[in-house]
Design a protein around this nucleic acid. Structure first.
Lengths: 349, 349
DNA sequence: GATCCATTGGAATGCGCTTTCCGCGCTCAT
DNA sequence: ATGAGCGCGGAAAGCGCATTCCAATGGATC
């Protein structure tokens, strides 16, 4: 039971397929009103739905926008996805979604899949990795991207450019992770803490590394000595797993009369960490300060309210598709430090 | 700079397009090994990427799975989306995502868009509405669905069937909202509370109504009198907005020596409610009990830990695409009541 | 050694649509 | 009155691929 085709509509309306096409699917040429009406009526009565595949083939433009994320269930990505979806809709595009487990190899495959679909644009929201073992895959990803661009595709990256050579044609919605983390470090460096610790993701994760680096700079700006760095997974469980070690350190410091502040490089890690610390019998901010990064909306009602850095996630998604589609120019996102209760000393309570 | 085509690959390999097609894109007939190798080499050196649109047109199967959600940034939907994405990948499909603001009119448009793309299957995760003013749109959605199915499409609904007539061809991954809420009501009815209140979504929202109804039945099972029902928005802000009213009621009850338990029909509402109550100076569970529904992962570290009903969200997404694709049969999801601290009396502390 | 069948590569057709390119009839300027 | 020019609908040529049908080749069979 094949779908009704444009030709059938044309026949029913007593016109040629060319004419039917012109009236039904936005063309330059507008056929006479009377004919147009007849065609529309025929289409309506037959329940005609244009075949987007065929249209894409004929006009070589698919009306698709590809989005690649690490994990769509992660609120960071799903917020971005909302923006992408909204912008795509406004531009009369549909979004194609691929979730990778993270890592350039899978991202390359995603780009290839999108290229096969001839998506008008690709937005990559996954995080970059510059670990040596990912070098080959990064290289492959760059090549795949170059090929896609050469075939007329457009691409926007959220966060940071590809490690290594970066095709100037790929637009970057750059997130000033380093600067914002630095500002956070500066502000927290001004608070009455004695020791600082960073709970970071594994080395080579660009976002994590830049946030760590920036935070250290900020501490230095504030005249503090560098924070110790603990590496763990870049998610909630990573933060949770880091808790015992942090707890031990905090206790030792506490015995020496020193107060600790921990910066987990993203909110989910921070939440996991706080949960883990609770199991260790430590409370925030009474026993230590904890800060995160991203200001995930779903986590705002969390108590103690988390000191973090706000990122306009949804806006970033919007911007990415608009930039990729050529309706906006690559921009740097603006975020802001938000000090909340999780880093306040007992005195403030 | 057009992409390289199959014909070019064929020419380069010195074979016909037919042969090239057979070796490159999984066909029944396997050309001789030597020829196959030559074709593959040609494809590789040219950087050939098959045009999925053209393939779809020729074989009339798109390799696409459509997913419609209310709001992809809502963790409920993004968890489902993760499952959909994973299952789609396993079935060598790509997912097409459309977010509606909720409401059958937009869902109809989404189905139409998916039908235009000739998606192999559509998964609808949005919530049903049976408000009178949505009747016409529901009707239209049903018709659109019927047309899609008639053209060979497949569809799975997560939650509940369409209000009114339900085409037997659309598969339903049914969520026993009523039964689970009933079980929750029964359990909570056995706890030392005196008054119960339900914070529900607007009337006509099937999910909300069933959970409310089930909860009332459960209370009855436990020998309790019915809960009062407050209607608000079905999201975090709705819960927050309900707080002042709830607070007043709780205080009144408290003065009369009665303890209140509130059931917010989803976790996000519950979290918003707790946040709002905090502003009112009320604490959970000290001053009242609060329960939610869904057991959103991101919210599990929330304190007080929320009593709720666990739903296998990701699994539901998987199941939906497998069922739609014919690899599984429509099933009823199993959830479970999870009693946590938010509904424990002070004694348990 | 002749016949038959199975296998293989190629030519051709069509998937559903858009878009030149044509030829027509009309209006307007000269 | 006549030619140029414009607007119109239709014919036809693809877009890139899968697939059916054909012809040719090879081997197996008796």
């Amino acid at each position: 039971m094949p779908a009704v085709t444009l030709t059938e509509v044309a026949r029913r309306a007593g016109v040629s397929p060319a004419t039917a096409s012109r009236v039904l699917n936005g063309s330059e040429r507008k056929p006479a009103a009377e004919i147009a009406e007849r065609v529309r009526a025929a289409a309506e009565s037959l329940g005609y739905i244009p075949n987007a595949q065929a249209q894409a083939l004929a006009r070589s433009s698919s009306g698709l926008v590809g989005l690649v994320v690490n994990d769509i269930a992660d609120p960071y990505f799903s917020s971005i996805a909302r923006g992408v979806q909204a912008a795509a809709r406004e531009h009369l595009r549909t979004v194609l979604l691929i979730g990778t487990a993270g890592g350039p190899a899978e991202e390359r495959r995603a780009v290839e899949a999108f290229a096969a679909r001839r998506t008008d644009a690709i937005v990559i929201a996954g995080s970059r990795s510059d670990r040596p073992q990912d070098a080959a895959d990064n290289e492959a990803l760059s090549r795949e991207t170059a090929r896609y661009l050469a075939n007329g595709g457009h691409m926007a990256l959220i966060g940071h450019p590809f490690p290594g050579d970066q095709d100037p044609a790929v637009r970057v919605i750059s997130v000033p992770n380093r600067d914002l983390a630095r500002e956070l470090g500066r502000r927290l460096g001004g608070e009455p803490f004695d020791d600082y610790v960073v709970v970071a993701g594994r080395g080579g994760l660009v976002t994590s590394d830049l946030r760590t680096e920036g935070f250290q700079q900020g501490l230095a700006d504030a005249g503090r000595s560098p924070a110790g760095v603990v590496r763990t997974d870049f998610d909630r469980d990573g933060g949770f797993a880091a808790a015992p070690g942090i707890a031990a350190a905090v206790r030792t410091a506490h015995d020496a009369g020193r107060r600790t502040c921990v910066f987990a490089v993203n909110d989910r890690m921070a939440i996991g960490l706080v949960a883990g610390l609770r199991e260790e019998g430590l409370r925030v901010p009474r026993d230590l300060g904890v800060a995160g990064f991203d200001d995930i909306e779903t986590l705002r009602d969390f108590r103690p309210a988390l000191t973090t850095v706000r990122l306009p996630l949804e806006e970033m998604g919007r911007l990415a598709v608009e930039t990729a589609l050529g309706d906006a120019s690559p921009a740097e996102v603006t975020g802001s430090v938000v000090l909340r209760r999780s880093t306040q000393g007992p005195a403030h309570t």
